Simulated scan of single mutants.
Amino acid sequence: MRIGELAERTDTSRRLLRYYEEQGLIVSERAANGYRTYDESTVDRVIQVRGLLDAGLPTRIIKQILPCLDKPRVIHFPDATPEMIATLTEERDRMTRRIQCLIRNRDAVSEYLDTVAGDELRLRSVT
């Protein structure tokens, strides 16, 4: 598939796909006309990369663990070094703290909305 189709199927800009390729996160072939072409499996790879980026992992770590990803959400890394394990542990713990913060913020927004909605209902019933 060409870059436009990959961009559409993954909801990712062409520019970002070219960046992923530049970083070694995805691979393309070049057609005779010079256009990039991507294998069907690149769709899943882009989704994996985006998910890992959204989780807060930097591209340098993603590049290291990508060879161990055989399908979305499954990581196999038989040759993990102590440094890699320490880095991934640190990243996991950072993501956990971020998740906890997001949950607290979500709960605060929900409480605010409940309060505002309750006030709005009380004001409507009075008038």
Rank of each mutant, 00 (worst) to 15 (best):
K63N: 05
A32W: 05
Q23I: 07
T81P: 10
I47P: 00
R18D: 08
D39V: 03
L69N: 03
D93C: 01
K71V: 10
V49P: 09
K71N: 00
R30A: 11
E83G: 13
Q64A: 08
Q23W: 01
I99H: 06
T115R: 08
D119E: 10
D107P: 03
L123W: 12
E91A: 12
L113P: 06
T96V: 09
I62T: 10
M1P: 13
I61M: 04
Y112H: 11
L66Y: 03
R122S: 14
R98T: 09
R45S: 01
T10W: 01
R36W: 08
E22A: 10
P58T: 02
I47G: 00
P72A: 00
A31W: 03
L113C: 09
F77P: 06
D54Y: 01
R98L: 13
D93W: 07
G51T: 03
T59L: 11
T37A: 06
A80V: 12
E21P: 07
D11W: 01
Y35K: 05
G24Y: 03
M1T: 15
G56H: 04
R106F: 10
M84G: 09
R18S: 06
Y20W: 04
Q64D: 14
P67A: 11
Q100D: 14
T59K: 01
P72L: 00
T89D: 11
I61K: 00
R94P: 07
P58C: 01
R97A: 12
D119A: 15
I75A: 15
S28N: 07
V74P: 02
G34L: 05
L25M: 06
D39T: 08
F77A: 07
V109F: 11
D11Q: 13
V49Y: 03
E120I: 15
L113I: 15
A117Q: 08
E40D: 07
L16I: 08
E111I: 02
G4T: 06
T12E: 04
A80Y: 00
